[in-house]
Design a protein around this nucleic acid. Sequence first.
DNA 1: CTTTATCTAGGAATCATTCCTACATAACAT
DNA 2: ATGTTATGTAGGAATGATTCCTAGATAAAG
Lengths: 153, 153
Amino acid sequence: MKLSSDELHARFRRHALRLTRQRAAIYSALASVNSHPTADDLYRTVKQRYPMMSLNTVYYTLSVLCRAGLVQEVNVGHDVARFDGNVTAHHHLICVGCRQIVDVIDEGLNQLAVSRGQARGFRILGHRVEFHGYCAGCQRAMLDVPPRNGQKH
Amino acid sequence: MKLSSDELHARFRRHALRLTRQRAAIYSALASVNSHPTADDLYRTVKQRYPMMSLNTVYYTLSVLCRAGLVQEVNVGHDVARFDGNVTAHHHLICVGCRQIVDVIDEGLNQLAVSRGQARGFRILGHRVEFHGYCAGCQRAMLDVPPRNGQKH
DNA sequence: CTTTATCTAGGAATCATTCCTACATAACAT
DNA sequence: ATGTTATGTAGGAATGATTCCTAGATAAAG
């Protein structure tokens, strides 16, 4: 969903963050989308309107927004970092074929806890659930093209 | 726990993997520990007994073992990959201070599922739950040394 | 014991991310 | 409005985990 200029100012002020053209562009791009773009995806998107934009600024801005809690980082395996402008409680479905990430909204998953016996003195701040599997598109693709790593015979 | 030579052979044969000295050393080192070492941690451990060991071989072996399902990869944020020789169902507790990873064994967490409405046609293979928080040690450390990023006033 | 497909070592290459620093500018106070 | 100043930005260089390449080694099968 699109974000009003007033709302943007309010969010930045609430977290004592300076609002620059670059930050507005980066945060709006991320908050208006429900995919989970990489820093480079955002860079390319935002660079169309601000050709001087530096990839460095995208990284720096994302780190600031993460620390402020306006944005969160999501990961698939150990590869490129992906970012999520949705910081309301939710979890993820990850396609191990095409690596897309889809949001899962489920109140039950938000309520999970570790038993005291297992918690080993940790003070828990939050949790994440990731479901791994194949998306509909990748399932179809597997029917057309047989997998490479088939068993012998 | 230590792994017998017979059991090692059996596991490798079961997955049609060649058993070399290097693979035995890497897999044994990982399977006998319940921390979650990085490739480099394993490299340094194993190099003590096999000084010719290459870091490359550690990476290659871990990728082979992961694909075979004898080992799994765990991640904290998007930084270095960590590996887990325990492939029975379990989840993790991650300290956001010192980044240590601790196992959580909880049958309830193994039973989670996504509702059909949220699953969007995915064929789910598995899931992971990560709890984030501060371990006992980091909580104590925070009492002694106040945090850097304190609010103004 | 031979054969052969696969593994290993080591060096080079890749590439996401971070570091450095001079210049620019948002926010605050005057 | 305008000046002041702490903070942000651009871009180039550095870092470091991981992957690629290749010639020699070796486990497994016959």
